[in-house]
């Protein structure tokens, strides 16, 4: 037995175990990555000269950013209020749409004819970056916050819908079976059997999505869909970099504040 173990095949196998194996693999990977980086940098027409010039530019750029200027503070406030409104509406309607779509798409509750269209909708909503969706909606409803709201609703359905669908698919079917056995109609099976099992996670998804929508609303604003992003983009175009910095600082502060607030809310609801 022990003789067989020390045979050539076994030894070959043993040299295949982690330490040695991973180190030559790691070296090879490092070389490949480095070679790729050099090649790709060449493709992107990167040169030391350009980089130095960039640094030079960057230094001037930074110099013009400081000190941050709040002289157009009211623009920041208006922009943020609009971003907040976009985020609230997108989250609210996005979640409202996600709930039925997720129930329809859950394979443990619904037959295939209902799940595949629901899953297709969610996949399509996830496939495109909110910015691209925003551009399409700008074409449809014109520049402004409405296009932003619609684009972020799509993004919310893609995110909350997917996670919520997965949450429903992970529930205990025993509890569902018991509720079904009482002769409950389907909607009551959902409210008594499904919802109690997933509500905690749903609250988590919603607060996360509100946060994500607030951050994304700065992004859709850049292409013309309203909110603080519009003010930011205008700042760039007018080369008012000190104003840009003021907006950036405010964004970071608001995001941080939002993180604290959501932790606080989570603690209240024990989720």
């Amino acid at each position: 037995m022990s003789g067989a173990r020390l045979g050539p095949t076994a030894r070959g196998k043993r040299s295949g175990i982690r330490p040695f194996h991973s180190s030559w693999q790691a070296k090879l990977l490092a070389i490949v990555v480095a070679a790729y980086a050099v090649y790709a940098l060449g493709q992107l027409e990167f040169s030391a000269e350009r980089f130095v010039k960039g640094l030079d530019n960057g230094a001037r750029f930074l110099a013009r950013m400081f000190p941050p200027s709040y002289r157009n503070g009211d623009q920041i406030v208006t922009g943020f209020v609009e971003s907040m409104q976009i985020a609230v509406l997108a989250t609210f309607f996005g979640v409202m749409l996600s709930l039925p779509i997720a129930v329809l798409g859950a394979r443990n509750l619904m037959p295939a004819w209902a799940t595949w269209p629901a899953r297709l909708i969610v996949t399509l909503c996830r496939a495109f970056n909110p910015v691209i969706v925003a551009i399409v909606f700008i074409k449809a409803v014109g520049f402004g916050a409405l296009a932003g709201v619609l684009a972020l609703i799509v993004a919310s359905v893609g995110f909350v819908g997917k996670l919520f669908m997965e949450a429903i698919e992970e529930i205990s079917m025993k509890q569902i079976e018991a509720v079904r056995a009482t002769g409950a109609p389907f909607l009551s099976v959902v409210t008594y059997g499904v919802l109690p099992q997933v509500i905690g996670r749903l609250v988590g998804f919603c607060t996360y999505q509100l946060d994500a929508n607030l951050r994304n609303s700065t992004m859709v604003g850049i292409v013309g869909a309203g909110g603080i992003g519009a003010a930011l983009f205008a700042g760039f175009q007018r080369f008012e970099y000190d104003f840009v910095l003021a907006i950036l600082i405010t964004i970071i502060a608001v995001v941080l504040l939002g993180e604290f607030a959501s932790n606080y809310v989570k603690r209240i609801f024990h989720v």
Partner: peptide, 13 residues
């Protein structure tokens, strides 16, 4: 009426 082996109560209610 049906009674189950693992009770099958809705745990969070």
């Amino acid at each position: 009426g049906m009674v189950f082996q693992e009770y099958n109560l809705v745990e969070r209610l």
